[in-house]
Structures are given as structure tokens and as C-alpha cells.
Write a protein that binds this DNA or RNA. Structure first.
Length: 218
DNA sequence: GGCCAGGACACCA
DNA sequence: TGGTGTCATGGC
């Protein structure tokens, strides 16, 4: 399995090149982006983040001061704006109260403790927590998203149990814990998912077509 | 006009 | 425990 997973990775990397993830100027911006991108197109998240930057609201202190309705207005383009404003509020209030607003002290926790802590925050689920750990705290943990599940499924590599943990285990068990590898691999899955696998007919020309179960003789 | 996008959570059986 | 509804804008 290790060889197959690395083969897929190298094919994607060769085809698309490095993705330079996460597209953000700071670890804190990664976190806000991770919340805003929940079930949203990244182009819409960029608009919301630019709104926050233009109001100089992209900091723990500024977001804690900002009234919820005003925050909702700024993140409006990313959709679910009331829900996402509440999630951002819950995160920055929690970070302020528990860690004095200091991300470095949060990120000093070991990986299991950090994951538990992040999951305790309302609005932070498994994918968001893992995205924060990989792309903001730079911990070697594999992020699973809808694209990853879809592509892994088409490759015929999906685990028996259809759960986040089972998909994550597939990568964590068979790959060495390598933050740079996990960073690039997940970014490539997303790139490939956007680029090709949303449109299954085009998958015949995609760089993974020869591995894909859609094109194997049953 | 319909579908989907780098999910999470409450609720119900 | 697993399925379903809700939250909602913007691009194609």
C-alpha cells in the first residue's frame, strides 16, 4: 500500500507541480480560512478574508472586539455567514481565554492533545482541526476531505469503513509522518479534485486514469 | 435555473 | 450509531 500511495502522490506532483499550500500570510489566517472554507468555494473565502484584512480585523484581539453582526457582514461572501461568524467568535474567544490569545502556546501541545483541544471548540470538526494542525501548526497529520475520499474511492483504495478516521488511518499507517509530504499530498488531492474528478468523463484523460477503478475492466 | 464548493452540528429514530 | 435537515453565497 505504501508504494501505491507514493505512486499516486508522485503522479499528481509530476502533473500539477507544488501547490504551495496553505494560501495565507500567517498561521492565524490559516485558521480563519479553514473555518470559512467549510463547504465553500475558495474564491468566496478569499473575498471574505480580504474584507477582514481591509478592516484590519484579522487578529485575535480585533475579532474578539468585533460585534457578531459586523463579523457576519464581513464574511458574507463565503456563505453560511451567521454560522461562520459564530464559529470564528467561538474560536477567538476560546483562544483568548484558554491561551491568552497566543497561538504558539497552543501549538506547543503534542499532536494528540492539540487535536483534542481544537475539537473541543464549537465549529471545529475533524477536517478543520487537522487542517489547522497541518497547515498552521505544521504537525504531520493527514487531512481528509471530500475530494480525498472521492479520489481514493475511484482508485479502489477506500477503507472498508467509510469514516474520516478510517481514511486518515490509510495514510497515517502506510506513510511516514512527514509534514511536508502530507501538506503537498492533500493540496494535490484538492487541486486534482477541482481540476478533473468533479467531471468524471474527463477522468479518462487524467494523470491517475491508469490507476482509476472507473477505467478497470471489472 | 440547478448544481456544487477544501464541513459542522443539532436532532431524531 | 447513522441518517437527515440546516446553514447560504457565488461561479459555472
Amino acid at each position: 500500500m505504501t508504494g501505491r500511495l507514493l505512486d499516486v502522490y508522485h503522479r499528481l506532483l509530476k502533473h500539477y507541480g507544488p501547490q504551495h499550500w496553505w494560501p495565507a500570510d500567517s498561521p492565524f489566517e490559516v485558521i480563519i480560512g479553514a473555518i470559512l472554507t467549510q463547504s465553500a468555494a475558495w474564491s468566496n473565502v478569499e473575498k471574505a478574508i480580504n474584507n477582514l484584512k481591509s478592516k484590519e480585523a484579522l487578529s485575535v484581539a480585533a475579532l474578539r472586539r468585533l460585534p457578531a453582526d459586523e463579523l457576519a457582514r464581513l464574511v458574507y461572501p463565503s456563505g453560511y455567514y451567521n454560522a461562520k461568524a459564530a464559529k470564528i467568535k467561538s474560536f477567538v474567544d476560546w483562544l483568548g481565554e484558554q491561551y491568552d490569545g497566543d497561538l504558539d502556546s497552543l501549538f506547543r501541545l503534542d499532536t494528540p492533545a492539540l487535536r483534542r483541544e481544537l475539537l473541543s471548540v464549537s465549529g471545529v470538526g475533524e477536517e478543520t482541526a487537522d487542517s489547522i494542525m497541518l497547515y498552521a501548526a505544521r504537525k504531520p497529520i493527514f487531512v481528509i476531505d471530500a475530494y480525498t475520499r472521492r479520489i481514493v474511492g475511484r482508485l479502489g483504495l477506500a477503507p472498508q469503513v467509510d469514516s474520516y478516521a478510517a481514511f486518515q488511518e490509510l495514510f497515517m499507517r502506510h506513510l511516514l509522518p512527514d509534514e511536508a509530504l502530507f501538506n503537498e499530498y492533500h493540496a494535490l488531492f484538492v487541486r486534482h479534485g477541482k481540476d478533473v474528478c468533479q467531471k468524471s468523463p474527463r477522468c479518462q484523460q487524467c494523470c491517475l486514469a491508469s490507476l482509476c477503478s472507473l477505467h478497470r475492466v471489472p
